Simulated assay, not measured.
Amino acid sequence: MTLLKRCCCGCDLRGGSLAIGVASLLLIGVTQLVLGIYCLLNIDETRKRLKFENAVTFGIVDPESDAAAYIFLGILLLVAIIYIIVSLVLIHGVRTKRQFLLLPWVFFTFLNMIMAFAGGILMLINSHGYAVHVIAGVLVLIISTLWIYFTCVVFSFFQALQDGDYW
């Protein structure tokens, strides 16, 4: 039995999953990759704008060195590349109706959105009343909730394929 019967826009689960795959490829994967490369090319400006505390680098790397920025941006690029790969696998899985090709995107997106949701809560807790931080925290929570719903849509399509509704 599927979790959802239709996508929120009124289209079926297959069309919604395909649209979600393309949107996540472009909005998250490619945007994050371009942003990471831009920040790497402008490392001095990036270091000025991003402050690395000992809590972030766990005391392993000097927060004032370029190494902290390179490590952070390297992880950002790695996550972007993985997200592009799982988004392409999702799109191929939806097109060919292969249910197990949907699972990498579901798991990776769900984990990313749980981390983003926790980050939004931490942003609200540490806002100290600054409006920009509160607005950014609320925005991150809204986007995280939306992507958790998108994960439910793709997982519902996985269940529909498993039940034989799309064969």
Rank of each mutant, 00 (worst) to 15 (best):
M1D: 03
K5G: 08
C7Y: 07
C8F: 15
G10P: 01
C11S: 10
L13S: 07
R14D: 00
L18G: 06
L18T: 04
A19E: 09
I20T: 08
V22W: 00
L27D: 11
I28Y: 14
I28D: 09
T31Y: 15
V34R: 01
L35Q: 12
L35N: 11
Y38S: 10
I43W: 12
I43H: 12
E45W: 11
R47C: 06
K48Q: 15
F52C: 01
A55Y: 14
D62L: 11
D66H: 15
D66M: 14
A67M: 10
L73Q: 09
I82C: 11
Y83E: 15
I84C: 14
I85V: 15
I85C: 02
V86P: 05
I91H: 02
I91M: 08
H92W: 13
Q99K: 11
F100C: 03
W105H: 00
N112K: 12
M113R: 14
I114Y: 10
F117T: 09
G120D: 02
G129L: 05
H133T: 08
V134N: 04
V134W: 01
V140N: 12
V140I: 15
V140R: 08
I142V: 10
I142L: 11
I142P: 02
I143H: 05
T145D: 01
L146Q: 12
I148G: 03
Y149Q: 05
T151D: 08
S156M: 02
F157D: 05
F157G: 02
F158T: 02
Q159E: 09
D163N: 07
G164H: 06
Y166K: 01
W167H: 08
